[in-house]
Amino acid sequence: MRTVLCHPYHLVEPSPWPCLGAGGAFFITVGSVMYFHYGLVQIMYLGVLVVVIIMFVWWQDVIRESTFQGFHSLVVKQGIKYGMLLFILSEVLFFFSFFWAFFHSSLAPAVELGVVWPPQGVNPLNSFSVPLLNTAVLLSSGATVTWAHHAIISGKREEAILGLSLTVFLGVLFTGLQGVEYYEAPFTISDSVYGSTFFMATGFHGFHVLIGTTFLIICLVRLKLNQFTSRQHVGFEAASWYWHFVDVVWLFLYLCVYWWGS
């Protein structure tokens, strides 16, 4: 049976999930502000609940449309690819703001900090210890995800499952090591603008690693359920693009915040 739809028609229905998901994300943002300022936690929980529910129904719709209805024609796939690229671009700009804050504070350290970076009294982490290991772990996961990708294209299912499982394992390992580093760090988020910029930038990167790992786990489950073919696997491609983006952000964080910044 042919699995490629070469006609130019866009067959999928408009979806309510992007708009409702954005609403959920907005509730998380506002809820977090309410939590940090007033200790009010309910709005944040509501936002998380909405986002989790929408993750399920949105993925369910995409899997139905792609795998079970066969609606992923070339033009539909191209639309999804535009969407993913624009989303990643917006994420790049999101991280720009944290790097901006970091360079603003570190290139000309304020007199209150002792005119030095790291500020007087702050002992930074050794960038050639666990952060270097984390760099190796994340770069390696980029190699294993490419292994899985080419295995899917060449129809080698077992190889693809192995490569993707290793990628997920490396993602979880990275998160675990970051958790240990956070606990062992001699400074906290309240230790001058060094702590604020460090935990804001690396913390949001950590969140993105969790999102990317979730995305890869979904792909692994779909791979095991035979939902990808060598021609039809946009979901996997989107996950691997996102994973590479998270990887590149880490490289910049490592070079600027961990190495230069220490």
Binding site: L139, A143, W147, H150, S154, K156, G163
Partner: peptide, 17 residues
């Protein structure tokens, strides 16, 4: 793709590990 897969598998095993 199969030959590219082998390359990246080798990179994963013999460089990354």
């Amino acid at each position: 793709a199969e030959s590219t897969m082998k390359t990246w598998k080798n990179v994963s095993i013999f460089v990354a590990v």
